[in-house]
């Protein structure tokens, strides 16, 4: 007899037949939903909202922003993957979510997504409060060596690229204590208020504290110095090879989205990147990046995932050995 499941299955297969046919007619034919995988007010949210605001006139349809926060962004990504792959749903995919997969969260993997465009990219930096005794990166690292585990570094959590960096520093003889704060606001307040000794963060998220002088950059975790902070040492100058954990923010769609639609979205995103408003925005958040094709951007995400996974296995084994 007709049970509801059978009916649903028939409905679904009908939808699968109709879906692509409709999509090929004209893209976009209705509002493009932008899923922001974090709550309002954060870096990913600002990026998603700027993208929506600037891309609306280019694509000619409304782009409502939907915040789906939870599980390091995986809740929103799950929603993206269950939406029809017709380009009418896009989502923010950022480094933090990708590293969470390597740590065992969620059930997504890089192959489930097709990255449309690399929107923002920034190395992470180490900051101290304005009246911290440590004036240079070398002084901080020396102090870490002299009092192992005494210096407290505020990070976003364990199993993130923040944690990997702290563990890497420890493996190079500079052990510090990782103090995770789930809420960014509490993380910044803790370092600005002098309750933790240093903060691991990308510069754009603490721009107001850098400008006011409440936070002082000590070190940039990259192979070369940051052009906005020419006086701040790069980690490679101190023989620290930890420049492979960038904080990128991309726009992604499900992997089985038709190529023409991906290309159409990628063109729109590239036009956004060229807009003066975007250039102003990315300069203010220290996140300007070169334009990439969808395939290049996809490769960055896949490589990042492999890198994080490699570090995780390495530190997991070290921990187990002890």
């Amino acid at each position: 007899m007709h049970n509801p499941l059978r009916l649903a299955a028939i409905g679904l297969s009908l939808a699968a037949l109709i879906g692509p046919a409709v999509a090929q007619e004209k893209f976009p034919s209705r509002p493009v939903e932008v899923i922001v995988t974090f709550g309002p007010g954060g870096g990913a949210d600002l990026m998603g909202r700027q993208v929506a605001r600037l891309a609306e006139p280019i694509l000619g349809v409304a782009m409502p922003v939907t915040n789906i926060a939870g599980a390091s962004g995986n809740a929103g990504l799950t929603r993206l993957l269950t939406s029809p792959p017709d380009g009418h749903t896009v989502a923010t995919l950022i480094a933090l979510s990708v590293s969470s997969w390597a740590a065992g969260l969620g059930s997504a993997k890089p192959d489930d997504f097709q990255v449309v465009a690399m929107m923002q990219n920034s190395p992470s930096m180490l900051f101290v409060t304005k009246n911290s005794p440590y004036k240079t990166a070398q002084e901080f690292l020396d102090a870490a060596k002299q009092q192992p585990g005494k210096l407290r570094v505020a990070t976003s959590g364990l199993g993130t690229q923040d944690d990997i960096t702290v563990r890497y520093l420890a493996s190079q003889g500079f052990p510090t204590k990782n103090v995770p704060f789930a809420k960014p606001a509490e993380r910044y307040a803790s370092t600005v208020g002098g309750h933790t000794d240093a903060l691991y963060e990308e510069p754009g998220d603490v721009a107001q504290f850098i400008e006011s002088g409440d936070l002082r950059p000590l070190l940039v975790f990259n192979d070369q110095r940051h052009e906005s902070f020419p006086d701040v040492m790069a980690s490679k100058e101190l023989k620290l090879e930890i420049g492979d954990l960038p904080n990128f923010r991309t726009i992604a769609v499900p992997a089985n989205t038709p190529d023409e639609i991906v290309q159409r979205l990628a063109d729109a995103m590239n036009q956004v990147l060229d807009k003066p408003e975007w250039k102003e925005f990315c300069a203010a958040t220290y996140t300007c990046t070169e334009k990439m094709s969808p395939d290049q951007a996809q490769r960055v995400v896949v490589e990042f995932h492999d890198t994080v996974k490699g570090y995780m296995e390495r530190f997991g084994q070290e921990q187990a050995a002890r």
Partner: peptide, 19 residues
């Protein structure tokens, strides 16, 4: 997902509960 260690608790194997 716990706030500090990023580990899912009482999720009974479902992704939805992680939020």
């Amino acid at each position: 997902v716990d706030p500090m260690y990023g580990m899912p608790r009482f999720t009974f194997g479902t992704d939805a509960m992680q939020s």
